[in-house]
Every structure is written in C-alpha cells, then in structure tokens.
Simulated assay, not measured.
Amino acid sequence: MKLAEALDDRASFRRFCGFAANEATPERTAFVRFRRLLVAHALDRTLFETVTMQLKAKAVTVKTGTLVDATIIAYASEDDVDARWVKHKGKRAVHGFKAHVGADADTALVEEVSITSANINDGKAGPDALPDNPGEVFADSAYRGNYFRDAVRVRTKGGIPRIVATGMWGRDEAETLRKLHEWNQPIHRVRGRIEKIFGTWKRCYGLRRMRWRGLAKAAVQVHLTAIAYNLKRTMNILSVSA
C-alpha cells in the first residue's frame, strides 16, 4: 500500500500522521483492517463530516451558493453486484458507481457526498448532496424537475434553484433563444467550477476507478478522497488569505 510506503519514506507524511522520526509505522495490513472497520461501522461519512466541519471553520467565508453535480467512477470488475451499467449519448457505456457532490460555490470545498450505483438518476439522488442552507444551487439540466427543485426550496429551508434550462416558451424564436442564453450563461459560468473538483479527484487522487468491491467500500474511497481534497484546498485558501 502506497500510504505505508510513504510513511516509511517521507518525513512530511510521518509528521502529518503524528509519528516520531524513530517510531515504527503500521504495516500494510493495519490500514486494511482500519478500512474494514470504517466500512463495518459506517464511520467514513462521520469522518468526512467531522473533518469538513473543522476545515470550513478555518476557511471562513460568507455562504452564497452551492454547486451540485455527479461524476461516474468505473469499476474494473463487472461482477460487482452493487455496480451498474450506464450509457450517455455519445459516450461509451460505463460499469461502476456515481458520486453525487455538493460543493461551496466560492471556496470549492466539498460539503456533501452521496454514492450510488452508476445508473441512478442525478435529479433523484441530488437532494442527498445538498448541504444545509445552500443559498443558490447551481446545477445542469439533469436536475430539472420538481423533485430536485422542491428539495432545494423546502428541505434546505429556502434554497434557490439555478438549473440549466433546455428550452423556453415564446412566440418569437430569436427573443426566446436570447432569454434562454441569458438564463443559462451565468449558471454555466458558476456550475463549471465543480468539474475542476472531479478532474482533481481523478487526475491527482486516483479516483478514475474504484479499487474496492461493493457500494459501502466505494463510499469509503470517495469519502477519503473528498477529505484529502478538502485538506489540500483549505491549505490553498489559507495561504492566499495569509
């Protein structure tokens, strides 16, 4: 396991994990047992929420909005009974899971995460990715419909849905297209920030594929990735404001 190797090799990792220079570090099997305990007691979400709450307190900002979106994460083995196939127009079919994410629109800190099979509709799972008091909620057209809109307005106590529209009614085509563009353009500009989060997860944190079998273990992998990302993101925010 790379973490065990890094603890033996890098002083920065040892300091972060609280090991003295001459102290023995756990073997690979210790981390495997730790992961199993996280799964068995469903503590990965609690760990994510606790760390994120502490980080948000450090990176103090005024809450103005929330980005909501989902990303598909493939699983190498097709015999995972919890994974599912999904096919989007113009793209190849993928077998795996989906991470539904709610992130702060200003700091890009991930606030909520929900993990499902890949075939679950974004709009149906989207409410589970909404934090409390989300402000304006920016989402793409997959979140159209009353189910998600009602969750934004009611469950989060007054959130404001800002969802990409695919069409508008109007008698004059040119005028209607202009209004559609005016509605969608500012949403696209803000909502696009969440794509950078997914890109960082997959490019820098190894989340292009799920490494562990089953939905519960997939949730652990995503939650641990979100924690690592939030730690790094908070360090960047604090370094800029210092």
Rank of each mutant, 00 (worst) to 15 (best):
G167M: 06
A139G: 12
H181L: 13
A129P: 02
I120Y: 01
I187C: 11
D106Q: 14
I187K: 07
D150Y: 07
G158A: 07
D140V: 12
A165L: 15
Q185P: 08
G192A: 15
V137L: 04
G192T: 05
D104E: 13
K179S: 05
Y147L: 14
Y147G: 06
Y147V: 15
D104M: 04
L180W: 04
A165I: 00
K124M: 08
M168N: 04
V110T: 07
I160W: 01
V137A: 03
N133V: 13
Y143G: 04
N146Y: 05
A118V: 09
D140T: 13
T156N: 05
S114Y: 14
L109K: 07
D140W: 04
A118L: 11
A108V: 07
R153C: 13
V137E: 02
V113A: 03
D104L: 07
P161L: 03
N146V: 12
E182L: 09
S117V: 08
G167A: 14
V113D: 00
E111W: 08
S117A: 15
V190N: 02
V137Q: 02
T107K: 05
G126P: 14
L130N: 04
R149C: 06
A139V: 11
R191N: 06
A151R: 02
A174D: 14
A139R: 04
P134N: 10
A125V: 09
R191Q: 10
V152T: 05
G126L: 04
I115C: 14
G170F: 07
L130H: 04
T166K: 10
D128C: 05
A105V: 05
E175K: 14
L177T: 08
E136A: 13
A125F: 06
R149K: 11
D128L: 09
P161E: 00
P134K: 03
M168C: 03
G170W: 08
E112F: 02
P161G: 06
I187T: 10
I187D: 05
A165F: 04
G159E: 08
R155E: 09
N133R: 15
L130S: 04
L130P: 06
P161A: 02
A129R: 00
G126Q: 02
N121L: 13
R171D: 15
R191T: 06
G135E: 12
D132R: 14
I120P: 00
E136R: 15
D106P: 11
P134V: 13
A142P: 02
F148L: 09
H181G: 06
A139M: 11
E175Y: 02
K124V: 08
R153E: 15
P127R: 12
E182S: 06
E136Y: 11
S141M: 03
G123C: 10
L109Y: 13
A118D: 03
D122G: 01
F148T: 01
E173K: 10
Y143D: 03
E173D: 14
R189H: 14
I187R: 09
G135L: 07
A125T: 10
A165P: 00
G123W: 05
H181M: 08
V110R: 00
M168R: 13
E111N: 11
A142C: 04
A142Y: 01
D172Y: 05
N133C: 09
Y147R: 10
R153I: 15
D132S: 14
S114L: 12
H188G: 07
R144F: 07
R191K: 13
D122L: 01
Q185M: 13
F148A: 03
N133E: 11
A142W: 01
T116H: 08
